[in-house]
């Protein structure tokens, strides 16, 4: 069983994200890229599959800043192989379509029964990586997964997905299969720093160059901007009755209560 985890580096929303007013694009110098959280869950799910079935887990990301650390961390957590795709381009929010093509090309050369990636990234302007990749490869795709149970014998997998409101649905699919992971069955494990450094020294991360993929973007990101938001609350003043009445009106405007 070969499991491939695709990790994407995204700007850390806990840190400041600045827009360059002149160009209307993100200020690259202030961006802190981290592995997308759901991709970390995809890795955890893959590691759980490895522990249960002895599968090999190959983790892939691109050569954006922090990509190497993400791979060392994945190795420290127990991944079998780590591949750094050299692309030599800075981060941009509209790149998922191109990334899907690059990974589709890469997957021609590496064995894969299951391809796991995060269900939805915060920069998916032009769609989700897993779904775009599945469309490229002509593979089936299941999203918002919370558990993946492959069966080597029948070469299939049972996938549980989260519909919300406490409702889940269960699918069965033939392999190979691409799965968008929402959350792993147990929270992503912590990699102690010494093991990350050991993985770094072990030189187990392999760089692979993928030929430039011709890609014609179908949409144009015209401008990025910070949302206009005033800091602090609008204070409602008056007697408790008046304030309660005013608040319910506001809630009604927002359709949180009926008319």
């Amino acid at each position: 069983m070969d499991v491939v985890v695709l990790m994407k580096m995204v700007p850390d929303a806990a840190q400041k994200i600045e827009v360059d007013a002149a160009s209307g694009q993100l200020k690259a110098s202030t961006l802190n890229l981290i592995p997308f959280e759901s991709d970390e869950h995809a890795l955890e799910e893959a590691l759980l599959i490895k522990e249960r079935t002895g599968a090999t887990v190959t983790v892939v990301t691109t050569d954006l800043p922090g990509g190497d650390v993400a791979l060392w961390t994945a190795l420290a957590k127990g991944a079998t192989h780590a591949l750094l795709v050299t692309r030599g381009r800075p981060y941009e929010p509209r790149s998922t379509g191109e990334l899907a093509r690059i990974y589709a090309k890469l997957l021609e050369t590496i064995p894969h029964d299951l391809v796991l990636t995060g269900a939805q990234a915060p920069d998916d302007v032009e769609g989700e990586l897993g779904a775009l990749l599945a469309a490229q490869l002509g593979l089936p795709y299941i999203s918002v997964a919370v558990a993946v149970r492959p069966d080597e014998g029948t070469h299939s997998a049972e996938v549980t997905t989260e519909l919300g409101g406490g409702l889940r649905s269960v699918y069965e699919s033939a392999l190979p299969l691409v799965v968008g992971i929402q959350t792993s069955e147990t929270p992503p494990r912590y990699a102690p720093f010494l093991q990350i450094r050991a993985a770094q020294r072990s030189k187990r991360t392999r760089s692979v160059a993928v030929e430039p993929v011709p890609f014609d973007p179908k949409v144009e990101v015209v401008a990025l901007h910070k949302p206009v938001a005033g800091k602090g609350a609008t204070m409602l003043e008056g007697s408790p009755e008046e304030v309660a009445g005013r608040l319910v009106e506001i809630l009604a405007e927002k359709e949180l209560v009926g008319g």
Partner: peptide, 8 residues
């Protein structure tokens, strides 16, 4: 944190 305007 960021809003975009995208044309298709």
């Amino acid at each position: 944190k960021i809003e975009a305007e995208v044309h298709a």
